[in-house]
Simulated scan of single mutants.
Amino acid sequence: MGPEPYEYGESELNSSIDWRTRAETDADIPAIHVINQAAFDRPDEADLVDALRADPAWIHGLSIVSTLPDDTPVGYALLTRCHVDSAPALCLGPCAVLPEYQTSGAGAAAIRAGLAAAEQLGEAFVIVLGHPTYYPRFGFEKASEFGIGLSIEVPDEALMALTLDPARPLPRGTVRYAAPFGID
């Protein structure tokens, strides 16, 4: 998992585009592959999404696209099953936007829709490994402050956690990602 493909300016917060979001359909799969490959300028994240679709970590309804008014996907956010020790949680990522739409709010719209869908499914905890100045706008906080870590070395500020249910405190422990992530 590399850095998220965004320019992290404030312009995204003031976008004039009214992004539509929805769960992916089978027809979106090729477009999602293109979005991830273009945003990261390499195939790794696109291949990861394809591998996750075949993994038990995949949760239908939590692969979200943001679309243009004509329903063309341009942004993407994925939530899959992970665990913090034995507690079920979700992993946010990859998140990607076609380069020509970055900083337009397409990524933020997909992430917000994904978090809302996860909450509707009764999920409580979300983990993200990403840019430390981007994800706090969605409520993510440094995971180490809650006793959450990884089995690999990453910058402390890059691993973040969020509870979708304020009545349920984040679990403590080590994040265990789905096998396709390649993190033991």
Rank of each mutant, 00 (worst) to 15 (best):
E119Y: 06
Y101M: 00
L150Q: 13
T21D: 00
E24C: 00
R168K: 15
S66W: 01
A54P: 03
A96G: 14
P3A: 11
D184M: 11
S63D: 10
L162P: 10
V97A: 06
F146Y: 15
C91V: 00
R168H: 11
S86T: 14
P171K: 08
G173A: 08
A124G: 08
K142G: 06
P166E: 11
D71V: 01
S16A: 06
S66M: 03
H83G: 07
P30Y: 01
A178P: 13
A77F: 08
Q37I: 01
G139A: 10
G107A: 09
D28V: 04
W19D: 03
A178Y: 09
F140P: 04
A178Q: 11
D55F: 08
E7K: 14
L78V: 12
L68V: 01
Y135Q: 06
Y134G: 08
F125R: 05
D71K: 08
P166R: 07
L52R: 00
L170N: 11
A161N: 09
P180R: 14
L162T: 12
E123N: 12
A23P: 06
D50L: 07
R168P: 09
A77E: 11
T163K: 12
A96F: 00
D47S: 06
P99W: 01
Q37M: 08
P88E: 11
D28F: 03
T72H: 03
S144I: 14
D85W: 02
Y76Q: 07
E119C: 14
L129D: 12
M160V: 04
P136F: 04
S86Y: 10
D184V: 09
A38T: 03
V175K: 05
A110F: 07
G9P: 04
I111C: 12
R137E: 10
R81A: 06
Q102H: 03
V49Q: 09
E100V: 01
G139T: 07
D44G: 11
K142H: 10
A113Y: 11
D18H: 09
M160H: 05
Y101C: 00
E145V: 03
P56K: 12
I152G: 13
E45V: 04
E157S: 14
P69R: 02
L92Q: 05
G61A: 02
H33K: 04
Y76I: 06
E10Y: 04
A51H: 03
K142T: 15
F40V: 01
A179L: 15
A179H: 13
S63L: 09
A27T: 14
P132G: 03
E24D: 05
E4D: 14
R22W: 01
D71T: 08
I29H: 11
L164A: 02
D184E: 14
E141C: 07
L68T: 08
L92I: 07
R168L: 15
G93I: 11
Y76N: 07
I183W: 09
D184F: 06
D28C: 01
C91I: 00
S66Y: 02
S144W: 05
Q37G: 02
A54W: 04
N14M: 04
I111W: 11
V84A: 12
I152V: 15
R168Q: 15
A113R: 15
R81L: 13
D18L: 03
A89G: 01
